[in-house]
Amino acid sequence: MKRAPLLLVLALVGCGGQASALPSVTISSCYDGDTCRTTEGEKVRLACIDTPELRGRNADPLPAKAARDYLRSRVVGKTVLIRRVDTDRYGRTVGDLYLKPFESVGLDLVRSGHAAVLQRYAKQCPWAD
């Protein structure tokens, strides 16, 4: 995973843009470990990762709350860069958030042990190889 920042740089340069060209949003809340809401009301599902579920058939509340609380501590009340990837079946933006130009929130969650890379979507994130 040491190559992630370089891959991100190459991906951004390859798209003709720079990290500073990404739009920014301010995060107002996080529902769980991989879903946040911006101050503008946009729901953002973090791309390329999965965290334990809070509710439902596959719920695992203790690690789910830990992932949610960790994500909240990292992004709530902060302005972050966003790379919008897609829209999911629930109408949420699927996106990669960055605290700094090369600090992916999704990668941080994976490295901290709160999330796993979703292999079927890994190609959407330069850091997820």
Rank of each mutant, 00 (worst) to 15 (best):
D34M: 08
K43R: 13
G33A: 07
R57W: 06
P52F: 04
G33W: 02
R45A: 07
N58W: 09
E40M: 06
K43W: 11
E42F: 01
G56C: 02
Y31R: 12
A59V: 11
A59Y: 12
A47S: 14
K43V: 05
G56D: 11
C48M: 11
V44P: 00
N58R: 11
L46I: 12
A47G: 07
E53L: 10
L46N: 11
E40N: 13
R55H: 15
P52L: 04
G41H: 00
D32N: 14
C48Q: 12
D32T: 03
R55E: 14
C30T: 11
C30G: 05
E42G: 00
C36A: 03
D34H: 10
V44C: 03
P52K: 05
C36F: 02
E42Q: 15
T51E: 08
G56S: 02
E53Q: 13
R45F: 09
R55Y: 10
V44E: 03
C36I: 01
T38M: 04
E53C: 01
P52R: 12
L54V: 10
T51H: 00
R57C: 04
E42L: 07
R45Y: 13
E42I: 06
N58T: 10
G33R: 04
A59L: 01
Y31E: 08
K43Y: 07
C48A: 14
C36N: 02
R45E: 02
T38P: 02
T39W: 05
I49Y: 01
R55S: 11
D32L: 12
I49N: 12
R45C: 01
E42K: 00
C36D: 04
L54D: 10
C36S: 08
Y31H: 13
L54E: 14
E42D: 14
L54M: 12
T51M: 07
R57P: 09
E40I: 06
R45Q: 09
D34V: 15
D34L: 10
T51K: 07
I49S: 08
L46A: 11
C30D: 09
C48D: 05
T39I: 15
C48T: 12
A47F: 03
R57T: 11
C36W: 02
T51S: 10
T39K: 09
G33S: 00
E53K: 06
G33N: 07
I49W: 10
V44H: 03
T39D: 15
